[in-house]
Amino acid sequence: MSTIKALRKNVTLSTIRRGIWDENPVFRQVLGICSALAVTNLLANTLVMSAGLFFTAAMSSFTVSLLRRYTPRDVRIMAQVLIIASYVICVDLAIKAYYPEISATLGPYVGLIITNCIIMGRCEAFAYHNPPIPALLDGAAAGVGYSVVLTFIAFWRELLGFGTLFGHQVLGDGFTHWTIMVMPPGAFFMLGITVWLFRGLLPPERRD
């Protein structure tokens, strides 16, 4: 009995570890980076966006897995998209209701969670073939992996671009703002450097 329990715990841990580090959606698979680039100029926006993605990824994986026996193979992609879209609508309405200013700055990017390849990828690769609870964990882990990298990027972009963190002045008045960091090219540079950094930390044989 205890071995089964230990095994289960092991599987759970490895699922989580895989989502956050081994197969991190952003820097390992380079998926879903549209929003990684677009929302990372302010930390507050990034956290709201990450929470939205976390919720959608976990719940969509869970639902896709629950319905996996009743979904015909031919229409599974469409079914997955509709499931994801329904959760995204919930997220969008919730953000609109509680954080109207952030909703305005995020603009269409909340809606674009639907086409975020991370969620589709996890539904298709994992949730469609596995029971609901592991699927929920898998989706949640991918969401956390995404959030960690985004927060890292947003931290540097906001700090260097505006001299602030969460809108509070951190760097003194003498600091020259790196305006480029909050403009589109800064997003590309920062994500490129992040991918470089995290891949550099991996042992060479696993860099593919």
Partner: peptide
Amino acid sequence: PALEGPGITLIITGIMALAFI
């Protein structure tokens, strides 16, 4: 080696975005 593939592509894109500004 760690910058190959997506990393360097993103940085090239950054330079392109800079040019488009």
